Simulated scan of single mutants.
Amino acid sequence: MIHYRLLNSQDALSLLNLQKTLDIESAYMLYLPHERTADLNQVQLVIEQIITSGLLVGAWNEKQELIGYLAAERGTKEKIKHSAYLVIGIKQEYTNLGIGTQLFKLLDQWTQQTMIHRLELTVITENIPAKALYDKAGFKVEGIREDAIFMNDRYYDEYYMAKIINRS
């Protein structure tokens, strides 16, 4: 049984361990395994920074292990406070179980509480499963960032995607 809750600074070790696992499991995460900081104090500061005005929610398995997360960092300047940039990661063995969909439902609830109007993310064009999740969550491609990522001795394009939250 998967349960979801907001993360806090006491979850720094769990988040760091998950991120390190994701860096190894997925070529689509931004960090290479050797680039991830191992400084728990730094991870705690990042968590505190995100939760001050953004959202950081985790998915936990029955063993109380963090298996997925979604971070939404709200714009800090007045002109972009209505928007948030997203990062999501789910351990490989837990993909295709509806966890991403549930994390996006929690994100939608947060946008209603915070009056966020625009959500943004990027995804490597070849990451078909992630693109499908974002499409399902209502995101639209706004453009292509050509040669945005260099890995495996070649360049990869990224989709720049956004979702506008309309309120009646």
Rank of each mutant, 00 (worst) to 15 (best):
Q102E: 15
Y94I: 07
L86F: 10
E126V: 13
G138R: 02
K136S: 12
V141C: 13
T122N: 12
G100W: 06
S83R: 08
Q112W: 04
E126A: 14
E142S: 04
T111M: 06
R154G: 05
I116C: 15
S83I: 03
P129V: 02
Q92F: 03
E93H: 13
A162V: 01
I116Y: 08
R154E: 14
I88T: 13
Q92I: 00
A137M: 06
K77D: 00
E142Y: 09
A71E: 14
A84H: 03
L121G: 08
L70D: 01
E126Q: 14
G100P: 00
R74T: 13
D135N: 12
Y156Q: 02
H117E: 15
R145I: 03
I128M: 05
Y85D: 14
I116G: 01
L107C: 13
N127T: 04
Q102Y: 11
A137V: 04
L133K: 10
M161A: 12
G138Y: 00
A71R: 14
T111K: 07
K131C: 11
G143H: 10
A130P: 00
D135A: 11
E126R: 03
Y94K: 04
L106D: 01
I116T: 15
I90P: 09
G68R: 03
L103R: 08
K105M: 05
I128K: 12
N96W: 04
I124Y: 01
D108E: 14
E78H: 06
N96V: 10
D108A: 14
Q113D: 13
K79A: 08
K136V: 00
K79I: 00
F139C: 05
G75D: 09
I144F: 04
K91E: 11
I128L: 11
R154H: 14
Y159L: 10
D153P: 01
M161C: 07
L133G: 10
Q102I: 10
D108N: 13
E93S: 15
L103A: 10
R145P: 04
A132S: 13
G68N: 02
T125V: 15
L97N: 12
L133D: 04
A162I: 01
G138L: 08
Y85A: 13
E93N: 15
Y134T: 06
K131Q: 11
I128F: 10
E120S: 13
A148G: 04
I67V: 15
I144D: 03
R118A: 02
A71I: 09
L86T: 06
D147Q: 15
N152I: 02
I144M: 01
T122L: 07
E93T: 15
L106W: 07
R145F: 13
F150R: 11
I149E: 00
